[in-house]
Amino acid sequence: MTNEALRKDPYNIVITGVGGQGNVMASRVLANMLVRRGFRVTIGETFGMSQRGGSVMSHIRVSSAAVWSPQIPKGRADLVVALEPVEAIRVLADYGNPAVKSLVNMRPIYPVGVITGEADYPAPETIRKAVAALSETSCFLDATAEAIRLGNPILGNIIMIGAVARLGVLPVNRELFAAVIREGMPASRVEDNLRAFAIGAAAVA
């Protein structure tokens, strides 16, 4: 497949969340779609502690020509996909800029410090306000709630990928997604993933 022009080269995506949310899977699915489009993609992942409650971040660099560093320079994200709301704020603090677009799943996963009462978790309205202020455009989804309705909260990650496709900033679509999912997943899970993708796409107006 030949590649189309990117809005920016390299186009920088951060997918962030908490261990166990399927962050790594989401980044690989998206990256594989872009490789099929003929782009050179680098994913940088920090998942050594991913299963133990820590923040997890994947940096995806998309280019038509070169291999880029697995770490996006500070202030240089073009798209932030957050599977957890305060992680969006954490990433924007480091990688945000006036042109960044943000997609945020609003289901919180409370840090232990919040559970114990040592720290406060900001109210949803505060989070929306902060993300909106730090982004050119922002979009908030209840991906986990939708995923639970589908039968598995982890599908929230694929709902977010569906939303990314609908944003129109990257040359990816349902057909590409289906091809990648069929290649990488047992047949029994393909249908649920396609449904999750469609829900995400529909959630972005």
């Binding site: 924007l92 603090a93 945000g96 730090l134």
Partner: peptide, 20 residues
């Protein structure tokens, strides 16, 4: 933009690692 970043600094609570 840096002014906005300062305004929202510290909003995200630290995420300490713990047993699953």
């Amino acid at each position: 933009y840096r002014e906005k970043l300062r305004a929202f600094a510290g909003l995200a609570p630290r995420r300490e690692q713990t047993f699953c």
